[in-house]
Amino acid sequence: MGRGRQKAKHTKVARELKYYSPETNYAALERELSHPNTDVVTESRYSADDDDDDQGYANWSDER
């Protein structure tokens, strides 16, 4: 019997989220887009040595 009330609450929350429009901080957006982010890592996550680690798995699958 509680499903109707639960559905009504979910509908209310969904409607609030759909029509919610917060104030946009254009100054912060401009700063974020104009300056390059120095925290971005430019080197690859994987090194050439990672290929050697896969050999153990390849050998294991051949044993089956």
Rank of each mutant, 00 (worst) to 15 (best):
K7R: 15
E32N: 08
T38M: 05
Y20L: 06
D50A: 13
M1H: 10
E30I: 05
R5Q: 11
D51G: 00
G2N: 10
L17V: 03
W60G: 04
D39V: 01
H35D: 11
T38Q: 12
E23Q: 10
G2M: 05
R31D: 02
R64T: 04
Q6P: 00
R15N: 11
S21M: 12
K9T: 01
G4Q: 04
T11Y: 01
D54Q: 12
G56F: 06
D39S: 05
E16H: 11
T42Q: 11
R31Y: 09
Q55K: 12
V40M: 03
V13W: 08
L17T: 02
P36T: 08
Q6H: 12
D62S: 12
Q6W: 07
R31Q: 08
S47W: 11
R15C: 00
Y19F: 14
Y26W: 08
E63M: 15
D62T: 14
A58P: 01
D54V: 00
V41P: 02
E32L: 13
R3Y: 04
D49T: 00
T24S: 07
V41F: 04
T11F: 01
A48E: 13
E63K: 10
L17C: 08
W60Y: 10
D54K: 07
T11V: 04
R45Q: 02
K18V: 00
R64H: 12
K18G: 03
E63I: 14
A28T: 05
V13Y: 07
V41C: 07
H10V: 06
P22N: 03
R45I: 11
A28G: 13
Q55A: 14
S61I: 15
R64W: 08
Q55S: 13
E63H: 01
E43L: 03
R64C: 04
A14M: 07
G2F: 10
D54H: 05
Y26D: 02
V40C: 01
T11G: 10
P22C: 02
Y26A: 03
S61N: 11
L29G: 08
S44Y: 03
V41M: 04
K9E: 07
L33W: 02
P36N: 09
R3L: 09
E23V: 09
T24W: 02
S34L: 05
E23S: 11
E43D: 14
S44C: 06
V13K: 13
K9W: 02
D49Y: 00
S44W: 00
D54C: 05
E23G: 07
Y46W: 09
V40S: 00
R15I: 06
L17H: 07
E32Y: 12
